[in-house]
C-alpha cells in the first residue's frame, strides 16, 4: 500500500495513553459486568433504544446528505450523482452502489488511520449489502452512486447509524428506491440482551465471561414497509435460539424507528416547498 507522505505521519508505532492509566477498562473488562447486568449506566431499559436525531440536507454540495445521532454516536453521509462505473469494460445491467465507510481519526478511543483499515472495509461491504435491496438499481444501468459515510463520533452502534443515515441520504438524493432502510444493533452477554449498546457495553459483549456463555453483537437492517431484512450481521458466539430471539426484538425496534425516518423526509420536502413558495 503506498503511503501518503503529504500528511504529517505520527511515529511508526504509537499506542494510546489510556492503556497505561490506572483503572483501565480495556484491561479489566469484567469489572463493569455486574453493574451492567443489573441496570444500564444511562438509566435506559434493556430493550430501549437511545434517542435518535435525524436531519437531511446537511451537505449543500452533495446531491443528498443526512446526519444521524444516537446520543453520542454521530454519523454523517453524503450521496453523489450517478456516474459511469470507472474502469469497467462490460455493460452491467444493474447500477452499482459504491460505499465507503470511514471512522474519523478522532472518532474512537484510539486514533484511526486516514486510510481504510480491514474493519472499515468490512463495514463498507456490510453497508453496501444493506442498501442494495432497497435501491431500484435497474433504473441506472452501467452507473454507480457514490455513498460516503463518516463516523464523527463512535459510541456504539455505528454500523446501524450508518445504514439509517445512508438510507436517508439516498432518499434525499432522489435515488429511486423501493423503501427506506432503518437499522438497529443489539448486544448479547449471557442471558441478557442489551438493545443499542454503547461502546462500553459493546466491548463487554465481545468477551465471554465464563465457558459456554452467549456473547456477541447483532446488527439488523430492515425495509419497514415490506418487512424485509436487508442485512443481518452477527459476531461473537451464541446459540441459534438466542439469535432468533434477538432478531424479533431488532425487527420490532427497526419498525419503531421507521416512522421517525419517514417524518424526517416529509419535513425536508415541506421545507423545500415552503421555501420555493416564498
Amino acid at each position: 500500500m503506498p503511503s501518503d507522505n503529504r500528511r504529517i505521519q505520527g511515529p511508526e508505532v504509537s499506542s494510546p495513553y489510556c492503556l497505561f492509566q490506572s483503572g483501565n477498562k480495556n484491561v479489566d473488562v469484567h469489572s463493569g459486568r455486574s453493574e451492567v447486568l443489573s441496570s444500564r449506566k444511562d438509566s435506559r431499559k434493556f430493550m430501549e433504544h437511545r434517542k435518535i436525531y435525524l436531519k437531511t440536507g446537511v451537505v449543500s454540495q452533495a446531491k443528498g446528505s443526512a446526519y444521524v445521532e444516537f446520543d453520542n454516536t454521530k454519523v454523517i453521509c453524503s450521496v453523489f450523482d450517478p456516474r459511469e462505473i470507472p474502469n469497467r469494460i462490460e455493460y452491467s445491467q444493474h447500477g452499482e452502489l459504491f460505499c465507503v465507510f470511514k471512522f474519523a481519526p478522532f472518532s474512537c478511543l484510539t486514533r484511526r488511520a486516514h486510510q481504510q483499515d480491514a474493519q472499515e472495509k468490512e463495514l463498507s461491504l456490510c453497508l453496501k449489502r444493506a442498501l442494495e435491496p432497497a435501491v431500484c438499481r435497474h433504473e441506472f444501468p452501467n452507473f454507480q452512486v457514490d455513498i460516503y459515510v463518516m463516523v464523527l463520533e463512535n459510541d456504539g452502534g455505528s454500523l446501524a447509524a450508518a445504514i439509517t443515515c445512508a438510507g436517508l441520504a439516498l432518499a434525499d438524493a432522489h435515488v429511486p428506491m423501493y423503501d427506506l432502510v432503518t437499522a438497529a444493533s443489539l448486544g448479547v452477554t449471557g442471558d441478557k440482551l442489551l438493545m443499542d449498546p454503547v461502546e462500553e457495553e459493546e466491548s463487554l459483549c465481545q468477551n465471554p465471561n465464563k465457558e459456554n456463555q452467549n456473547h456477541g453483537l447483532i446488527t439488523v437492517a430492515l425495509m419497514g414497509a415490506h418487512t424485509q431484512v436487508t442485512q443481518m450481521w452477527q459476531t461473537g458466539s451464541m446459540t441459534a435460539a438466542c439469535v432468533s430471539d434477538a432478531l424479533t426484538h431488532l425487527v420490532q425496534i427497526c419498525e419503531e424507528t421507521y416512522p421517525i425516518a419517514q417524518r424526517c423526509l416529509v419535513k425536508s420536502v415541506v421545507d423545500t416547498i415552503s421555501k420555493k413558495a416564498q
Binding site: C126, R129, E132, P133, A134, N212, I218, M223, H226, T227, Q228, V229, T230, Q231, M232, W233, Q234, T235, G236, S237, M238, T239, A240, V243, S244, L247, T248, V251
Partner: peptide, 21 residues
C-alpha cells in the same frame, strides 16, 4: 456444539424475518 459465531447476508436481495429464522 451448534453455536453461531458469525452470520452475514452476502448477496443482493432481502429476506423476511420468518424466512431468516
Amino acid at each position: 456444539g451448534g453455536r453461531l459465531n458469525s452470520l452475514c447476508k452476502t448477496s443482493v436481495g432481502s429476506l423476511h424475518p420468518h424466512t431468516l429464522a
